[in-house]
Nucleic acid binder design. Sequence first.
DNA 1: ATGAAAGCGCTAACAC
DNA 2: GTGTTAGCGCTTTCAT
Lengths: 338, 338
Amino acid sequence: MKNVTLKHLASKLGLSVSTVSRALTDSYEINVETKKRVKALAEELNYQPNPFAAFLRKHISKTIALIIPEISNNFFSLVIKGVETICAEKDYYVLIYETHEDYKKEVRITNHLIGGRVDGVLISVNSESDNCQHLQELVDRNVKMVMFDRVVENFNASKVYSDDYDSSFAGVSHLVNRGCKRILFLKAGDKLSTMHQREKAYFDVLEKNNLPKDPSFVKSFVPSKEIDLEDLTKFIVEKKPDAIFCSVERLAIGCYDICNNLGLNIPNDIKIITFSCLNVARLLNPSLSTISQPAFEIGKTAARLLLDEIEGKNLADGFANLSLPSTIIKRDSTRKSL
Amino acid sequence: MKNVTLKHLASKLGLSVSTVSRALTDSYEINVETKKRVKALAEELNYQPNPFAAFLRKHISKTIALIIPEISNNFFSLVIKGVETICAEKDYYVLIYETHEDYKKEVRITNHLIGGRVDGVLISVNSESDNCQHLQELVDRNVKMVMFDRVVENFNASKVYSDDYDSSFAGVSHLVNRGCKRILFLKAGDKLSTMHQREKAYFDVLEKNNLPKDPSFVKSFVPSKEIDLEDLTKFIVEKKPDAIFCSVERLAIGCYDICNNLGLNIPNDIKIITFSCLNVARLLNPSLSTISQPAFEIGKTAARLLLDEIEGKNLADGFANLSLPSTIIKRDSTRKSL
DNA sequence: ATGAAAGCGCTAACAC
DNA sequence: GTGTTAGCGCTTTCAT
């Protein structure tokens, strides 16, 4: 069975291609009866317009790209869900790309998008680079862009992120309130503004509470690599922390494993809190205290901003800059020690 | 900045469009020097071919669709990763669609794909329907298809799934070996062959061990809905099981919560084993025994089959039918009772 | 109210 | 080797 085209419909109906096209788009100039006939046959043969041909004329693909570091990650898969929700409503299609935290892959992807494959891009940048030329080029070629979560501070685009500073401040303060004095901060990457915010909050809490601010208590991990558990174990043994503030879920999971190995009791020996959207955090042993970013909302908000921009419903005053609140949930991993 | 087209390049170089096109595809008929000049300029201006125009000529989009019930699900997000891995290698692009277990959405999606948007489709069908006309229509219009995990038995397409019967048999046998006699089976949906396999294995184990085969010990949940915890609680209270065999992770999580509420100890009062790809299963309280399907492998294998089919590297003998082995991991939730 | 024809950017058959 | 031309399926002037 061949695909049904306008031409087919036209010849079957004894009409011209252009009439059929107009009938299907409900043009006011077309006779009501004709419209009915056309639509009936289109329905019957299940005519589906060829999106590529339409694009070539209109330069609108009704497709956006979603560029993220990793799909199998609770945070990002919730973001995807949010994006899909909005795009489905507005009949946009979503192309998902993974960078695996690799700058080169990110460049390859954005180059690929230059050809005019998509109307816009939602991106959470990789954590390894601060060079944004490839992003600028996309924007220059009129591909709309909205950044989310991992945003580039000095880049001209709308941005949606979470309240990294405030929620980190609350998280570390919670540890201090539980009596912790030797708090490690485990970072994922050095270049992201999100990480800078979290680190700043960490030190500010220490300062506010007159606790020593020791830079050697901060350790940075390369997000694209497996966590080096041996290395982390050494670090923990050496620093003898009474708490760990993790900036990503994977680090907290690693800490759980290490504490189990070392026979350290959570929370009596060490308390742990982490950024995470893990839905079974309450069922862990012990249940894990989390700072949960509003991933689904971030996805929805970023998608809405992007589609508005694509459709010209632009904000009068330049770019949006939205911070959405995270939720801090205190569970047993930061319970008072016995 | 306008997008760079072949026309631009051609006029800048004083060549015809077709020469430029051929130079870029490394046609043997083009002068080496010319090729160099063309490629240099293309590089300089970062020329990216318009994929829509190319498609319109060649009817090859180098894009496939991946249709799954849910993205934020450990199993499916690993499948996505597998698919992406293969497709990235071969320079194919992946369009991800979610059905949310909704038959109508699935039809809407497949209709959308009829227009010629993709060269092929990877699908894990929704669990609510047994009508495959919409899938047949896609295939009829020459869109290649490979089914994975949730396959339709009597549909003509290559299929990749896991060893549902064998792994279920092993899982239920494990419970019986631990001394369990009142084992509940919690199903997700009634229409999928995967569920039939799992159910058959469940009853076969009971029969083999001369345990009563009581159909009222099987309960079916609608996968698209939130689990009704009250209802499930009643069921557990009424049946007084000593073990629960869950066919999806969400059900096991629900059981954990219920046992916590009822003050039932896992594994002493009730043992639990479930199909799941949860990577923190070992850290739950108690650690959760799982049957883990090879999600990443399933994704890779299905993608390979599909791309081969698209590129005409067809299997001589019709369709592939591959079953990949799951891994059963025995943890504390099925530990011997004290 | 309908049709004819041009053109989106690209490829490929056919000249020369 | 390179240019000319037609056409993929669609939308959109411009005619009628």
